[in-house]
Amino acid sequence: MGASATIAAPGWRDTWKHVRYVATDNPVTLGAFALFGFFLLLALFGPWIAPYDPLMSDTTVALKPPSAAHWFGTDSLGRDILSRIIVAAQLDFGIAVSAVFASFFLGSALGCLAGFYGGWADRIIGRIADTIMAFPLFVLAMGIVAALGNSVANIILATAIINLPFYIRVSRAEVNVRRNAGYVEAARLAGNSDARILALHLFPNVLPPMMVQISLNMGWAILNAAGLSFIGLGVRPPQAEWGIMVAEGATYIISGEWWIALFPGATLMLVVFTFNLLGDGLRDILDPRTRT
């Protein structure tokens, strides 16, 4: 990944055309876009779509398998699982989007500085990235959340930190190969400041590989957040979140009540799968040589 030296950022006026091309070139990618749109709708309008109140418990219908009234069944407190899954989309997407964008902005800023100035800046920033990468990433996230306190904000922070190195590396590599390019010299001679050159001339080159990274990372961020909630960090019951719902269903699956864990788990899987397909589709189109 990352060696996409020949790709220029698309002009803004072509953006729409390009998006359409990206979406329709491969039927799998198109399907992924459709699914993504569907999940986005759930995340945005979940509370209005959900047929029941996700927190309302009704012990008379506890532990009921899927039926016409409750499509995905009910959990041990009689809460409707479908409604909980729909409402949870907002929280899971929210965590992933905030975390990925935080690491995108911070990571590309640091990476650009390291790639542009080299020397000490490069060494220090490189060392930070290496130190983060010296940990198994999920373990580091656990440590951070445990140390800073058990809250959703800290899950976002931890997920952002463990993703940071990838963004630093991609943007550093992209800026580094171009810092002495002709157009950069020209911009400098024309009197542009370093900051302006970085922001307007170099940074746009980082965007195409970053889009792929963001899409692949989003799925990973959701997995991470759900994994942290599964072991009891971050989101707390009774709030609906896919990881917690799987954890709640875990004790029942051995005695045969499969639907409590299955539906939230399958949703989680489908969402991550969608993001990974999207990332692959984007990469195929933006940089066909790295296709695997």
Binding site: G256, G265, L268
Partner: peptide, 22 residues
């Protein structure tokens, strides 16, 4: 390969336990 990286390990584990044990 794409499906594999999308699997939440805690969920696959439960599923395997359910299918193979229950």
């Amino acid at each position: 390969a794409t499906a594999g990286v999308s699997l939440p390990t805690f969920f696959t584990g439960l599923l395997l336990a359910y299918v193979c044990y229950f």
